[in-house]
Design a protein around this nucleic acid. Structure first.
Lengths: 218, 218
DNA sequence: CCTTTCATTGAACACGTGTTTAGCATCTTA
DNA sequence: TAAGATGCTAAACACGTGTTCAATGAAAGG
């Protein structure tokens, strides 16, 4: 009783897939309707006949990519943390690259979609962190949301700037190789920390909690 | 015996500054020559008369912004770590916003400039980390460059996606407020780590060091 | 079979872009 | 003062963009 999936072999779906491919590869602003039409082997007018406008096509692509990724994410997310998703990813890295590159471009685009994407990731991080605190594997941070934003910065940063990091690390292939290289240091950082002492933290706390009677403190 | 600085009041400099302002605010692709001309109170043809082409104007802007920021960064970087730069920044946050927003756009742009910028930041992070390891304040990581990439992800992420995080945190004003909010959790994370146990790290290490004679290990 | 609908195309249009060109005014310099 | 360079403008050009429109082909339905 599927409604649309069997519709996925039509020219309309072919156009959509071609658009997703080019959007993911070259970005949204640098991809013209004519380029998509050529990629799909079709005339430019047909695109807007099927999707109404360029914005309509973009919307359909967003819906498609967001649909499959959030579906995958939610099914892989509920049981435990990111572990399943990470192992799933490392098992078949190529299965996600198209959607990931698309999300990367959407993130770099600088529109309301980018903001929504980022904030969605923050919410997700916060949920995971709270669960980790609950079962005792994650430190009970005061500002959980702040930590969630921080981890979101790392995740999103690795996705958005992974290709550049690949060059810096002498790897080839975009963010996929970077993720594997980064896993070790990341876990090391996340279990043992970065500094050897808590001098910086205590100094920061003393500096940022300026109790009004600071002279009487000693 | 200054060569150019006194030239900084001419219309050519006014055009350049107007361009930097618009580039920083709206991004490069969304800023047209005509918009810059209007902002500078000048005719479109004058821009290319002074700078040869749109690319020439862009280049001049890059040179200007990169010049002042790297000058500031190097003078503030040499003595100690980021501490001076951070305190300097928190003291007068508005003094850097224009250049930072410009760099943000350059980072999000997705050209060779973005990659160069990121890689420069990785080098800088690595230098700082190595210095920290030397004086004993930073943990002696195996993969220093990997950690440098990781910290670069965080820095660049906070710059690039700070505005979105501001919305997620209920702050207003872009990445400036986010940095202040993030400082505490960041330091907490960097001194005590994220996890409470090293279970994840050891599990990862066991999984990723598959010595060929694993059965004889015990 | 005829008709009606729909997918598809090629050419055109309006618009915004970077760039060119000719002209004008203004300032410098001999 | 006359001449020449320079700062600057207005109008136009070539080009790429998204979009429209009339025409054509094929498939579906009565």
């Amino acid at each position: 009783m599927r409604s649309a999936p069997e519709d996925d072999l039509t020219t309309k779906a072919r156009i959509r897939d071609a658009a997703i491919r080019l959007y993911a590869r070259d970005g949204f602003t640098k991809t013209s309707l004519r380029a998509i039409a050529t990629e799909a082997g079709v005339s430019p007018g047909l695109l807007i006949h099927h999707f109404g406008s360029a914005a309509g096509l973009r919307e359909a692509c967003d819906k498609q990519v967001l649909g499959v990724t959030t579906e995958r994410a939610s099914t892989k997310m509920h049981p435990h943390g990111l572990k399943d998703l990470m192992s799933e990813f490392t098992r078949n890295p190529d299965g996600y690259t198209l959607e990931m590159d698309y999300l990367r471009q959407a993130l770099l685009e600088g529109t309301a979609t980018s903001a929504a994407l980022f904030q969605h990731l923050v919410e997700l991080s916060e949920t995971v962190i709270r669960a980790g605190i609950e079962d005792g594997t994650v430190r009970p941070f005061e500002d959980v949301r702040g930590v969630a934003v921080l981890t979101a910065f790392s995740s999103v940063g690795s996705l958005a700037f992974g290709p550049y990091a690949a060059e810096a690390l002498g790897l080839d292939g975009g963010w996929q190789g970077v993720l594997q290289r980064i896993g070790g240091p990341g876990l090391e950082l996340y279990t043992h920390g970065f500094y050897t002492t808590d001098a910086f933290l205590t100094a920061y706390r003393e500096a940022t909690t300026p109790d009004p009677d600071e002279s009487q403190e000693a």
